[in-house]
């Protein structure tokens, strides 16, 4: 039964992708991208990846759409049609698609328990997580402990991207005659969305905190929580105006979160080394190795959450501040 549903969702996914490429209005394309992400999240959930579905729904359908829209507001939403060269591109892409489809017949069928992916380290992770960490969510365990180096790298990539956006958009626009528009008021004239939104923002942030600290026991963790809290604050900015959101969470706090989160993650690793273990080997943090692991994971997940939330919000504010200049 769920299989039929998956076929339906995947077909919708293909149709949405074609529609995104076909439309010439970029605004429509961005809205369709949001639908695409939501369908993708539903597919991830069907394929048993609850954590990934949560991330995709919060990041793909929420934050990405807002960032795309704020970039569109600065550039313009009409795409100029291009003449010629269409057939060559179609033929190239078509041949490539056929080649990939032909190649997939060598892959193990969906859900095959004997596939090579399931033979290597995955059974070991599943077996050792209760023993080493003492909590049930294997994804969190692999993310923050077994593959902690990987996650540290990813956090620093997010950090670097955030710094990059701030550098690129931090310079004043070249046209000097721009006068700052009067303080953007958000949806202040729309009473109903504002009232409902105000009601929802605290619950969204609360849910984000729940996802953050319940990540060891259910789907969740720093990446998802950071994205959810960021969407909550972005909703506040959309309702009350960007200046009001900056008064609630100032830029310095956001930058502190990005830098502090990344530093927290790294310094936990260094503390592990000082206490006689390897880098990011949390077992040495407490007398009982299981407690040590849990403590380490709690701290680095908090670091990841802070870094992701701060980075996404800084990026949003960088685009939004640009908007009120031009």
């Amino acid at each position: 039964m769920i299989f039929v549903f998956a076929l339906f969702l995947l077909t919708l996914l293909v149709i949405t992708a074609l529609a995104i490429v076909h439309t010439e209005n970029l605004f429509v394309a961005v809205m369709l991208t949001s639908i695409f992400s939501l369908l993708m999240a539903a597919n991830f959930f069907i394929l048993d990846a609850a954590d990934v579905a949560l991330t995709e729904a919060a990041v793909g359908a929420g934050v990405t759409t807002v960032i795309f829209l704020s970039a569109l507001a600065l550039t313009g939403e009409r795409e100029k049609p291009r003449v010629g060269g269409r057939n060559i591109a179609l033929v190239t892409v078509g041949i490539l698609a056929l080649l990939i489809i032909y190649a997939t017949f060598d892959k193990p069928r969906l859900g095959d328990p004997n596939a090579p992916v399931h033979q290597h380290v995955a059974p070991w992770y599943l077996e050792k997580t209760p023993e080493y960490m003492g909590f049930p969510n294997v994804v969190t365990a692999v993310l923050s402990s077994f593959r902690g180096y990987d996650t540290l790298g990813e956090v620093f990539v997010v950090f670097a991207a955030c710094i990059g956006v701030l550098f690129i958009l931090g310079v004043r626009p070249p046209r000097e005659s721009l006068e700052p528009r009067d303080e953007s008021s958000g949806l202040r004239h729309h009473l109903i969305p504002q009232v409902v939104g105000r009601l929802l923002v605290p619950f969204i942030v609360l849910f984000g905190l729940y996802v953050q600290f319940h990540g060891e026991y259910g789907p969740g963790g720093g990446f998802q929580a950071g994205a959810i809290i960021a969407t909550g604050v972005i909703l506040y900015a959309l309702l009350e105006g960007e200046a009001e959101a900056l008064r609630a969470v100032p830029r310095s706090v956001l930058l502190g979160m990005v830098i502090g989160g990344a530093m927290l993650f790294g310094s936990v690793g260094v503390v592990c080394m000082l206490m006689g273990g390897a880098f990011l080997d949390y077992s040495v943090l407490a007398a009982d190795p299981v407690w040590g692991q849990q403590l380490g994971i709690l701290i680095i997940e908090a670091g990841v959450g802070m870094a992701v939330c701060g980075a996404l919000l800084s990026i949003f504010h960088a685009f939004a501040a640009r908007e009120s200049l031009s």
């Binding site: 949806l187 729309h190 109903i192 969305p193 409902v196 939104g197 009601l199 929802l200």
Partner: peptide, 10 residues
């Protein structure tokens, strides 16, 4: 039930 009608209104 809170967000749906609000979105439609907006």
């Amino acid at each position: 039930l809170l967000t749906g009608p609000t979105a439609t209104y907006a």
